[in-house]
Design a protein around this nucleic acid. Structure first.
Length: 479
RNA sequence: GGCGGCGUAGCCAAGUGGCAAGGCGAGGGUCUGCAAAACCCUUAUUCACCGGUUCAAAUCCGGUCGCCGCCUCCA
């Protein structure tokens, strides 16, 4: 079965072929750095990461660009609202750049913690002002934009295809218009490319006024700069479909006269406890909050990645616990394979080849089908159960281990270390664990089971699980 | 009002015409000093509801109910 993705633009599954054979050019809408990223943000970023990993698994070279928005993203109405970063700056009595840098650094730290691969570039809006001004100038020259009172607006009426992505056509928007028309705008759906506002903390000179860029223009400037006028994939959250991506298409295609993006992919919203996440409902989780609550990064990654990206996901702490157990099963399995690869026993298993072929086929079919991770994981767990029944000779264990590594190159969860910052891991060190394990063994030998069980409990409280097997005692850290 | 999505076991979640994957949880077993891990068995005669098409529908069509998102704050 071919690799295929759901294209928001055509509203159907399409076989995927990059423009340049063997190379995929992909732009991911990244964070606006005015506060800490929440798990909904990271659902989208983890989707982008998984998509990149899967394309690489399939042998493509992936040129991945993920932006950082540090100016222009307005907090309320697009014309009257304030810049999100400016709001945070005023509130905290800091310069906008300090706010942006602080949250950008925090974001990058979280991204690494969740095992996201580093994109080719992370361009920032404030570092591409001159490119944006150049594009705006060309749009004015071409008649797609007009200047009033130092501001520049895109004239949506000049772009008949407006609405193709979101379904919000000009007619419908006009019919349902509920926004006061800004006096400078010709139509309520026109959007700002450049704004003039003397009160704004971030100001750049331009041919029209000292001011700052609109939100949508940054992605046009940065994506086309690094990926060309037409590229393969553009991703974002479903809320980006309108207005952000609709406006990007209008701007960019008016500018170049070419198709902007071939495949638009959007993650659905994530709900928490069945409701939209919001601070007022008390169900708002930033990634760092969850880590502080003891959800380890790899459990969080597993939980967020294991649900299909186009399915509305309901995030709960109970769900995290289920994810933790499932992940523990995979990690225990891997550890057993490692041991068997070193000192396994038994003759070659008759059905082994068929099992390997089955899991590979099933996993790849799921992932190829619009990144259906749930289906792909189903194949993996079925395989795990079958392999667990066998006694593996080293060669087979090594092959299974190798395959598990392939699976994890796409999912990125097993290779993640537990982090010291994670409280469930406790502070106990290996020397101390070894001492307690030996003390417990001595107690068991003396049939002092009360003492042995007390030690086991003590270790369990530190996140250490003891397993007495015929091959000896083992211990492991909780995932 | 316009656009889009969802409703599958206690929970999460695949499956878009041919006897309902997988994970978590629960119960029973094998193993164990007891556990843990692993394995075995059980846990949806049924896919929100009502009609229709078909030899055959969770899957297609029509309708009803419920939930959610977007329509210039948001991934």
């Amino acid at each position: 079965m071919p690799l295929r993705f759901y294209n928001t633009l055509t509203k159907r599954l399409e076989d995927f072929q990059p423009i340049t054979p063997g190379e995929v050019r992909m732009y991911n809408c990244g964070p606006t750095v005015y506060s800490h990223a929440h798990i909904g943000n990271f659902r989208a970023f983890l989707f982008a990461d998984t998509l990149r990993r899967w394309l690489e698994y399939r042998g493509f070279r992936v040129r991945q660009i993920m932006n950082i928005t540090d100016v222009g993203h307005l907090v309320a109405d697009a014309d009257e609202g304030e810049d999100k970063i400016q709001v945070a700056a005023l509130k905290q009595n800091k310069a906008p750049i300090e706010i942006a840098n602080f949250y950008a650094d925090a974001y990058l730290e979280t991204s690494r913690l969740l095992n996201c691969l580093e994109p080719e570039r992370r361009p920032r809006a404030t570092e591409h002002i001159s490119e944006m001004i150049a594009i705006i100038g060309r749009l004015v020259d071409k008649g797609f934009a007009y200047v009033t009172n130092g501001a520049v607006y895109y004239d949506v009426s000049k772009f008949p295809a407006y609405g193709r992505l979101s379904g919000n056509t000009r007619e419908q928007l006009l019919a349902g218009a509920r926004v006061e028309v800004h006096p400078d705008k010709r139509s309520p759906m026109d959007f700002a490319l450049w704004k003039h506002d003397p009160k704004h903390l971030m100001q750049w000179p331009s041919p029209w006024s000292s001011g700052f860029p609109g939100w949508h223009i940054e992605c046009t400037a940065m994506s086309t700069k690094y990926l060309g006028e037409t590229f393969d994939i553009h991703t974002g959250g479903e809320d980006n479909i309108f207005p952000h991506h609709e406006c990007e298409i209008a701007q960019t295609e008016a500018l170049t006269g070419k198709t902007f993006v071939r495949m638009w992919m959007h993650t659905r919203y994530l709900l928490v406890d069945g409701e939209k996440m919001s601070k007022s409902k008390g169900n708002f989780h930033t990634v760092r909050d969850l880590l502080e609550k003891g959800v380890s990064p790899r459990v969080l990654r597993y939980a967020l990645v294991s649900v299909h990206y186009r399915q509305p996901m309901n995030f709960t702490l109970e769900g995290c616990e289920a994810a933790r157990t499932a992940l523990q099963r995979l990690i225990d399995f891997r550890d057993r394979l490692r041991q068997a690869a070193g000192a396994g026993g038994g003759a070659p298993n008759a059905g082994f080849e068929a099992l390997m072929e089955g899991v590979r086929t099933g996993f790849e079919a799921g992932m190829d089908d619009d990144l259906n991770v749930s289906e792909a994981l189903g194949a993996v767990f079925t395989w795990v159960r079958e392999v667990n029944k066998l006694t593996l000779p080293p060669a087979e264990a090594a092959r299974a281990l190798d395959w598990l590594g392939r699976v994890d190159s796409a999912l990125g969860v097993l290779g993640m270390p537990g982090t010291p910052a994670d409280p469930i891991h406790g502070t106990i060190n290996e020397v101390e664990i070894g001492r307690l394990v030996e003390e417990r063994q001595a107690a068991r030998k003396a049939r002092d089971f009360a003492r042995a069980d007390a030690i086991r409990k003590q270790l369990a409280d530190q996140g250490i699980t003891i397993e007495d097997s015929p091959q000896g005692v083992r211990w492991k850290r909780k995932v």
